[in-house]
Structure formats: C-alpha cells, structure tokens
C-alpha cells in the first residue's frame, strides 16, 4: 500500500521531509519508525491523517503519517 510519510525537526536530517513509500498491509506506525532507523524512544507525537495516534496504530493505503521527535531540552 502507498503511504505518505512526513518527518519533523531533526528526524529530517539525512532522511526527508515528506515522501511516498510502500508498505505491506498490516503495517503499524512503529514499523515505519523502525524502517527509518529512528529509535522508538526518540518519537513523541505521531499522527495519521492529522489525528494523534500511537506507535501501535495500523496504517492504511493512502494514509498520511506524521512523525515528530521528542524535544525535551530547556
């Protein structure tokens, strides 16, 4: 299935801002994170089609997945 993945802040470094990618049926957001080489503990907000979801949420054909990093410094 075809999924649009959007990355934010330093997750873009060495990757991309937005890209169409192919994933098999049954893929969850955490699988996308793993495939991109992002540590799951580095992930903050994730959204599917602008609604907040979790790493365990399944994604479907045509979905837009947005992945934001944890930003914690002060």
């Amino acid at each position: 299935m075809q999924v649009t993945v959007k990355l934010f802040a330093f997750f873009r470094d060495g990757r991309f801002k937005e890209e169409g990618r192919e994933y098999p049926a049954g893929t969850v957001v955490g699988d996308v994170v793993d495939e991109l080489g992002i540590g799951r503990d580095e992930v903050g907000v994730v959204m599917i089609n602008s609604l907040q979801r979790s790493l365990e949420s399944p994604i479907g054909d045509g979905d837009v997945v947005a992945i934001f990093p944890v930003i914690g410094g002060g």
């Binding site: 903050g44 790493l55 944890v70 914690g72």
Partner: peptide, 18 residues
C-alpha cells in the same frame, strides 16, 4: 500529548545540544 511514551518516574535522558 507531547511526551506520550514518558512517565513521571522515567529515567532522565542525557542533556541535549541547544
């Protein structure tokens, strides 16, 4: 919302660059 995978008693992370 911003820290969905963190708990109050989670171990502190190393300082980040700013």
């Amino acid at each position: 919302t911003l820290y969905p995978n963190v708990r109050e008693d989670s171990a502190s992370k190393p300082p980040v660059n700013v």
